[in-house]
Design a protein around this nucleic acid. Structure first.
Length: 389
RNA sequence: GGGCAGGUGGCGGAGCGGUCAAUCGCAUCAGACUGUAAAUCUGACGACCUUGUGUCUACGGGAGUUCAAAUCUCUCCCUGCCCA
């Protein structure tokens, strides 16, 4: 597996932050990085050229969604994800495990709560399609097959993501199942890779909820599998930020040093900084893109909502001195106008800005770690970001 | 000039004697969103305050009927359509 080489470039002295590189068949990842989410094989509202302009090293797609529509066989027939979506850089596919959790929660008002939508069994998970209610069954083996067909560079083990508030007993049950599934994923993955020209890296996912003993146990277990990277799941799923940071502190020393560490589903600018200082190398989150479509944007001075009437006649860009296409060319007034008028271009402009904000933040993080003043940078950023003006 | 249909909160439009400060939609204002069923969802939206099964002012204007009127009667004003 030497095509998935991991190389540490620089380490921060005061924190666990590090700058590194991870090689994949479609290019190198410059870590720490943020990965824009493109669940249905597209980062909503943007085209690949724009993502390249934003310096996105890698993007995500989702097993669950693409399996249901159009079907992973279709993507395979069309030449695989990269070719199909015209994205030449690396791709990571999520396993669909998270969807099991998010659908089981039944938190959506439009959800049919009469039906048991998800049944977790030892062998796998039975669930109903969110599209037409049809029954489907995922096993670790099947999820490996789907991800093999999709053809992403990094693929994820099938896991059970327990809600943040889960009891020790429940979290342990989910963790044990995830461990067993991870072993089965690894076995199936090894089998599938033999016939593949372009290899894929499988990452296992640490679970254990907010219970320190479980998290340590899970981290040790997953590290032992000796896969090319390791992911931390089951965070930012309802627990507090303090609990999330604490959990990262607890497992920090058990994470393999010589492999990329991926904190799944995170997050906000502050979460990225806190994550990096706890040794995290990869992040992904829908927040940048979703919030953009909902009218909120990030700046160095915090989070703002474009809908607020105070932005109506602001001639300045969303953020002064921002290097993104949106801020270089348009006033806040104009972007707000497009948003208020429900114009597609407005959604794109805010999406570009938010993604740029996070990707640029990570780029600065890499620079400051190398320069040896990461902590100073982080403290100053957070102080300004949370300062109420 | 004659006939008909109407005038309700920023707009559209319900209600047709009490449970109406008035359904609903739009607009507006604000909030939420963390491995995307999300260009979505939630809340506020007459005024005032001691924020309460609180007090005022309100369904074109005025005058009535009634214990009680956005809802019934009379009258005036206005709007739209049709006929001269």
């Amino acid at each position: 597996m030497d095509q998935f080489k991991f190389k540490i470039i620089s380490k921060d002295k005061k924190t666990s932050a590090r700058v590194s590189e991870f090689s994949t068949p479609h290019g190198k990842l410059h870590l720490p990085t943020f990965m824009p989410v493109g669940t249905r094989a597209t980062v909503k509202t943007l085209n690949p050229e724009e993502l390249v302009d934003l310096n996105a090293d890698i993007i995500l797609a989702n097993t669950y969604h693409l399996y249901l529509r159009p079907g992973s066989e279709t993507v395979k027939k069309m030449g695989g994800l990269h070719k199909w979506m015209n994205w030449k850089r690396p791709i990571l596919t999520d396993s669909g495990g998270f969807q099991v959790f998010s659908l089981a929660l039944e938190k959506r008002p439009m959800q049919n709560t009469d039906k048991k939508l998800v049944k977790i069994k030892e062998d796998g998970v039975e669930f109903r399609s969110y599209i037409d209610g049809s029954k489907h069954f995922f096993t670790p083996e099947k999820v490996m097959q789907i991800q093999s067909d999709l053809g992403a560079d990094i693929i994820m083990a099938f896991d059970e993501c327990a809600p943040g508030e889960s009891t020790h007993a429940y979290a342990k049950q989910a963790m044990d199942r995830t461990h067993e599934w991870a072993e089965r994923c690894k076995k199936e993955h090894n089998k599938l890779q033999k016939s593949k020209k372009i290899k894929q890296a499988l990452f296992p996912i640490v679970q254990g909820g907010i219970h320190d003993d479980l998290r340590v146990e899970s981290t040790k277990f997953m590290a032992k599998l000796d896969l090319p990277g390791i992911a931390i799941g089951g965070l930012s799923v309802g627990e507090t930020k303090e609990q999330m940071y604490h959990t990262l502190d607890v497992i920090k020393d058990y994470l393999p040093e010589d492999k990329p560490r991926y904190l799944m589903g995170v997050g906000t600018p502050e979460d990225l900084l806190e994550g990096v200082s706890r040794g995290i190398d990869m992040f992904d989150c829908v927040m940048a893109t979703r919030n953009a479509r909902h009218g909120s944007f990030w700046t160095k001075d915090g989070k703002f909502n474009l809908k607020n009437c105070g932005f109506k006649e602001i001639a300045d860009p969303l953020m002064k001195n921002c290097g993104c296409y949106t801020c270089k060319n348009y006033s806040t007034s104009y972007v707000r106008h497009l948003y208020m008028e429900n114009e597609t271009f407005g959604l794109r402009l805010v999406t570009i800005h938010n993604l740029h904000f996070l990707l640029d933040l990570m780029s600065k993080v890499r620079t400051h770690i190398k320069n040896g003043d990461f902590t100073d940078f982080k403290d100053k950023f957070l102080k300004r970001y949370f300062k109420k003006s």
